[in-house]
């Protein structure tokens, strides 16, 4: 139940008025963990069109996970790529770290694997 890159790839800044360029939240990790989730091909294929691939490969690089910079054209049938993607999306987990909005620089803290997306007093 730590934060995986799949979640990071859908998160955007919640600060009021920060509606543009508020994705992807820049990731920085102090503590990482690797899970052993079983490879679920159907699920990865289902998520393919929803993933912002460029943002994902950049974020993965930030925490030292290698992904090809471009999604291969045959991604749907490329099993080697899908397995790599599965690993990056579902198995690499951030236990401690931060997420930073690229637009307003708001920092979200990840503690015990749980990002705190609560607005503070001044943000509601």
């Amino acid at each position: 139940n730590e934060m995986h890159l799949l979640t990071q790839n859908m998160l955007q800044c919640i600060k009021k008025g920060c509606n543009k360029d508020n994705f992807p939240l820049r990731i920085s990790a102090q503590e990482l963990r690797t899970d052993e989730r079983e490879y679920d091909r159907d699920f990865v294929i289902r998520m393919l069109p929803r993933i912002e691939y460029e943002a994902l490969s950049r974020s993965a690089a930030e925490i030292g996970v290698a992904l090809p910079p471009q999604m291969p054209a045959d991604a749907q049938s490329n099993d080697a790529f899908l397995q790599l993607l599965h690993h990056a999306l579902m198995n690499v987990a951030v236990v401690t770290g931060t997420l930073t909005c690229p637009n307003c620089a708001r920092v979200y803290i990840i503690k015990n694997g749980i990002p705190n997306m609560m607005p503070n007093e001044t943000e509601v």
Binding site: H4, L6, M117, M118
Partner: peptide, 9 residues
């Protein structure tokens, strides 16, 4: 994956 978040926000 879990998130601490306020739905109303």
């Amino acid at each position: 994956d879990l998130l601490e978040s306020d739905m109303g926000n």
